[in-house]
Design a protein around this nucleic acid. Structure first.
Length: 244
DNA sequence: ATTCGGACCTGAAAGC
DNA sequence: TGCTTTCAGGTCCGAA
């Protein structure tokens, strides 16, 4: 479920509340995010790492529900409740969170134009949507935001990376930042299962231009939004604004 | 090397 | 009204 904006929203909320508390005797020093991972750091250098996958939730002092998988208890009696209907999500303790670095490319909000260009150049055949969703190339983008970023950039999701021109790459780079930052500002997108750490929904859905809007009118022209399959995932786009 | 489908799970919504 | 199919914010694995 959650992509960068949703995990980042949870991170910011947890950071404010749980730093300084203790979990199984160990003091929490920071709450970080890497790609779609949420990482709770302890004073002894170890970390507790979460991946929420499709339906995971982390809710502060949440009520235990049918799909609650784990309740973490802090020393002051407050709790962090992990719910996950589909059971894809996971958590684990690691001695050193550095080991996670090998799995991910640059953070989507931090990548610079040059390294984006170089990375695109080294995978010319892949379709741009799949490129954006590949965490090894660029970290944090999933199915919602890849569609929204490509719509904003007027690039067809099935466009081969090697066929993008400099102007398109520059636009893409700008829109990755722009869309993700705005989505963080609105606390992410709640479609079904996503709630933030305070149990609230994210408001960014109302700014979606294409994601899950098949059949509705494009906001820039008169065409209807189409949905196709790319790499097993739904891709939503405007066939008029985003041509191959 | 890439690409594809399927696997992991549960449940809601749509289709017939 | 039911029964069946499709779909879902992710990622991993093995077979073409």
């Amino acid at each position: 479920m959650p992509e960068l904006p949703e995990v980042e929203t949870i991170r910011r909320q947890l950071q404010k509340i749980i730093v300084g508390k203790k979990l199984s005797g160990k003091e929490i020093t920071a709450v970080r995010r890497r790609a779609k991972l949420l990482i709770i750091d302890f004073k002894d250098g170890s970390s507790l790492v979460f991946h929420l996958k499709m339906s995971g939730q982390l809710i502060l002092n949440g009520q235990p529900l049918k799909h609650t998988r784990k309740i973490f208890k802090f020393n002051d009696g407050s709790t962090l409740v992990f719910n996950d209907m589909r059971k894809f999500g996971w958590w684990k303790r690691v001695k050193n969170s550095q080991i996670l670095e090998k799995d991910f490319g640059p953070e989507a909000l931090k990548i610079n134009l040059i390294s984006l260009k170089n990375c695109l150049k080294s995978h010319p055949k892949i379709k741009i949507k799949q490129f954006l969703m590949n965490q090894h190339f660029i970290a944090g983008i999933g199915n919602i935001y890849s569609d929204e970023i490509l719509f904003a950039s007027k690039i067809h999701p099935a466009k081969q990376v090697g066929k993008l021109n400099d102007r398109q790459i520059k636009l893409l780079h700008q829109n990755i930042k722009k869309i993700l930052e705005k989505a963080v500002e609105y606390k992410g997108s709640s479609l079904k299962d996503y709630f933030d750490a305070s149990g609230q929904k994210g408001d960014y859905v109302k700014y979606h231009q294409v994601y899950q809007k098949e059949g509705s009118k494009c906001s820039r022209c008169t065409s209807k939004i189409k949905r196709i399959k790319i790499g097993g995932r739904s891709a939503h786009f405007c066939p008029n604004c985003q041509k191959l």
